[in-house]
């Protein structure tokens, strides 16, 4: 589904990604871990098309398309979804209205007619159940006055609504207590299928107790320095990141 080859990117003059290689197949969950400043969020931003980041080299293929040539909204319409670390507030715009606009633009891109009100409502009801979110929250202005947990749950609800092929969860666990974490993780798990894939970007292992990854990659100084199965996450939790740093230093 996604093939990243030697991806390099910078912000301003600062090189952040220095050659990332990653292959994600349908049905897989990949965790990207790493210490602060290693480039995890940058990778998520570059994949979703944030313009502050300049890609200086490498290739990204998504479902046979050159991802780097697509505009952010085109990437979204092709099936890339990012759950934001800090979801933004849009006053006066309800989640429902927001989703209706998004869904219909995506449908238009696929040559489908807009969803009628009844079908939209039905879809919404179904997805609300899936991610355990209350309609009163969806009637309110998007993310305005939401608690940390509500914001993240709202992100997962949007993900459920848009049914992306590839979801990127950017530090979705940050700022969540354990109950909220569990609800969010349950939502993500309920959406897993053999046709979609997930990239979980996280600093801590605890989210991976709930969203169990097939692969774990450790990002350090803009490179993936270690890859493994889910055990790697536990090892990191137990030993911290220092040994990775030492290994990386030795390799240089």
């Amino acid at each position: 589904m996604l093939t990243i080859k030697n991806l390099q990117a910078k912000i301003g003059d600062k090189e952040i990604l220095k050659g990332i290689n990653l292959k994600v197949k349908a049905g897989e969950v990949h965790a990207i871990m790493g210490p602060n400043g290693s480039g995890k969020s940058t990778l998520a931003s570059v994949l979703s098309g944030r313009e502050e980041y300049e890609v200086t080299g490498g290739e990204v293929d998504f479902e046979g398309k050159n991802l780097l040539e697509l505009e952010p909204e085109e990437r979204a319409r092709e099936g890339i979804f990012m759950a934001f670390q800090y979801p933004v507030e849009i006053p006066g715009v309800s989640t429902i209205n927001f989703m209706k606009t998004a869904l219909n633009q995506i449908r238009d891109h696929r040559g489908q007619p807009p969803l009628d009100a009844v079908s939209f409502l039905q879809l919404m009801k179904e997805k609300m159940k899936l991610v355990q979110i209350d309609q009163s929250l969806l009637n309110r202005s998007l993310n305005e006055g939401f608690s940390g947990g509500e914001k993240k749950r709202n992100e997962i609800f949007q993900m459920a609504m848009l049914e992306p092929k590839l979801s990127i969860l950017d530090e979705t666990d940050s700022g969540l207590d354990i109950d909220a974490l569990r609800i969010v993780a349950n939502g993500v798990n309920a959406l897993r299928s053999k046709n979609n894939a997930t990239i979980v970007v996280t600093h801590y292992q605890r989210l991976l107790d709930y969203i169990v990854p097939d692969f774990v990659h450790v990002l350090y100084k803009g490179r993936i320095v270690k890859s493994g199965g889910k055990e790697l996450a536990l090892e990191l939790e137990a030993k911290g990141y220092d040994w990775i740093k030492t290994e990386a230093a030795l390799a240089e």
Binding site: G49, P72, V88, I90
Partner: peptide
């Protein structure tokens, strides 16, 4: 705000319209 909308597949014009009408 704009990027958030773009990432959901909403183009820039629609995003501005959405934000301004919300305001």
């Amino acid at each position: 705000q704009i990027f958030y909308c773009l990432q959901r597949g909403i183009d820039e014009e629609a995003a501005v319209a959405l934000i301004v009408n919300g305001y």
